[in-house]
Each structure stands twice: as C-alpha cells, then as structure tokens.
C-alpha cells in the first residue's frame, strides 16, 4: 500500500510539472498581460517598469525557472491584478465552491441512489418509468437555462428562496461556512440543486443499470435460495456490488463539479472560485490561473487516490499493491 501511494505521488509530481509548462506556454501564446493591465496612454518608461516589475522581460524559459524555484519555497507569485499572493486569493474563494460542490454531490447521492434502486427493482412500474424519463431531462436540459428556470419558479413566482448570493457564514469547529446558518442553507439550496440535477441523473442511471445487471446474477438467486429476506438480498448482496462503479463515478464527478461549477456560480452570483478563474483568464492573470490549476489538479489527484483506496475496501479482489496506477 505504501509503495502504491509513493508511486502515485511521484506520478502526480510529474503531472504537475507538465501541467504548469502547458499553462505557461498557453497563457504566453494568448497575449501579453501588460497590454491589458496598463492604460494605453502610459509612457514607454512606465511600460518598461511594469514589465520588469512583473518579471515579464525575461525569456519564457527563464520565467518558468523563476516560477519553479519560487514554487519550491511555496510561493506561487502575486496576482498581476490584485497584487495579492495568488494562492491566498484562490484559497479565499475555494470554501464557497467546495461548499456548493459537496452540497450538490450529497443531494445527487441522497436522492439519486434511492430513486435508482427503485427504478432498477421495478423497471416496468409507472414510478420506475417516470424516474427514467426524468433522468433524461436531467441529462439534457442546459445547465444555465435550468438555473434560470429554478430562479424564476422558486425565487420570482413562489418567493421561497433567494435568487443569488451566498448567505452569512458561521464558524463551527474552525470551519467557516454558510452551512452553519439557516439563511446560508436557503441561499445554498437552489445553486446546489442546479449543479446536482445532472449528477443525480447520472447516479440514477448508474444505480439502475447496476441493480438490473446484478439481480440476474447467480449469487443473487442463490442468496434468495438461502431464504434471506429480500431486504437483505437487496441492501447487502446487490448494493455492495453496485457501490463499486458508483464510487468511481461519484469520485470523478466530484472533481469535475468543483472544477466546472462556473456556470452555476455565475447565474447564482455565487462568490466561488469559478468566477475568479474566468476573470483571471480575461486579464491573463497568469499566477492566479496557475495557482488555481495546481490546486484543482491536486484535488483531482487526492480524490482519485481516495477512490482507489475505497476500491480495495469495497472489492476484496482488488489489492492496491498489484494495481497499475
């Protein structure tokens, strides 16, 4: 197991290096941030000073080396725009996004798995068919439109929930989050639902397919032949087997929810990281872009590692030491 984790960490390091090179080259190719940052009527002297202050006068490979040597010391540079350390900036916005992402994932699991089980066990019933039809909507509706509709129905017509923004936060066990205030929950519900609908449909379909497939297997029939109650057959024998694909997909989707919450954050004016990265890309604020991507990549790596470890817990046939990571 420790060999597996060590190997995984080495790979992650290589991955990070490659990623930063690509981002560096990519942002450089798009344009020169100075043209955007400095006012067009600045003198040549002012221009040169700004270029030198940001270290943009050096050739790209030297800029990269400077970046690397600072990275080793834990310094990701300062934002060109805010003149604040990029990492601090990213971390100040991250909690809001994480909160949203986890709430969305939780919603899709808590609602998606029971619905999927129902649809899998009673595929021909009206409820089963309706669930499947609903999941097609969840898949196909454009996220932004669906968000606007949610606002229209629940905020404008019914006036049950606020249309946007993040509620007040409270501190609990050292974590500052809007999850700990009632108003925070009200603000969170709509954006989380908007983000969750697609994932929920995915979980429903995956659970249903798993149930349908597993029910036909001999060991389920054997479990029934042993005289077990159908509750035990479904919740132990079937469920433990379908958890394996579910955990994989949920893990991967959690990463993508964090990284791609941009649309939802924009519609609901959620002060998350998605908005920050879009703004940074517009002004070519390279340190923030790089810092953001490093954080996201690290998060993906961590989630994948957790998924792999969960795998070995769920499926006794998987041994991490033999796994080709």
């Amino acid at each position: 197991m420790s060999v597996f984790i060590l190997r995984r960490l080495m790979q992650s390091l290589v991955l990070l290096c490659v990623m930063t090179i690509i981002v560096f080259a990519g942002v450089y190719a798009i344009g020169n941030p100075i043209d955007i940052l400095i006012s067009p009527d600045a003198t040549q002297a002012e221009y040169d000073r700004a270029v030198r202050a940001l270290g943009l006068d050096l050739p790209l490979w030297q800029q990269y080396l400077v970046f690397l040597s600072k990275l080793v010391q834990g310094d990701l540079g300062k934002s060109f725009v805010f003149n604040e350390p990029a990492l601090t900036l990213v971390f100040s916005r991250l909690p809001a996004t994480l909160e949203l992402a986890f709430a969305a994932m939780l919603l899709s699991i808590v609602i998606g798995i029971p619905l999927g089980l129902w649809a899998g066990l009673r595929p021909d019933s009206v409820a089963g068919r309706s669930i499947m039809a609903g999941s097609i909507f969840g898949f196909s509706l454009p996220n932004f439109w669906q968000g606007l509709m949610l606002i229209m129905v629940f905020s404008v017509f019914l006036q049950w929930l606020p249309a946007g923004g993040r509620g007040p936060t409270a501190n609990f066990l050292g974590i500052n989050s809007s999850l700990f205030t009632a108003e925070g929950w009200q603000h969170l519900l709509l954006p989380a639902l908007n983000l969750a609908l697609f994932k929920m449909s995915l979980v429903i379909r995956l659970t249903r397919a798993g149930v349908r497939e597993t029910l036909l297997l001999d060991y389920v029939k054997f479990a029934r032949a042993k005289g077990l109650s159908s509750r035990r057959v479904i919740f132990v024998h079937v469920f433990k087997n379908i958890l394996i694909p579910l955990v994989t997909v949920i893990g991967l989707e959690l990463g993508s929810v964090i990284a791609f919450a941009v649309v939802t954050e924009t519609i609901f004016a959620w002060p998350g990281i998605g908005k920050l990265i879009i703004d940074s890309i517009f002004v070519l604020d390279r340190p923030v872009i790089v810092a953001y991507l490093i954080v996201i990549v690290l998060m993906f790596i961590t989630i994948n590692l957790i998924v792999d470890i969960l795998y070995s817990v769920l499926d006794p046939r998987v041994r991490l030491a033999d796994m080709k990571s």
């Binding site: 001999d218 060991y219 024998h237 394996i244 499926d315 006794p316």
Partner: peptide
C-alpha cells in the same frame, strides 16, 4: 457454477 454462486464482495 460455484464461481458464480458466492457473492464476491462478502
């Protein structure tokens, strides 16, 4: 088929 009658994860 004894390969299929026992639940692999229990």
């Amino acid at each position: 088929d004894p390969m299929m009658t026992l639940n692999p994860v229990l």
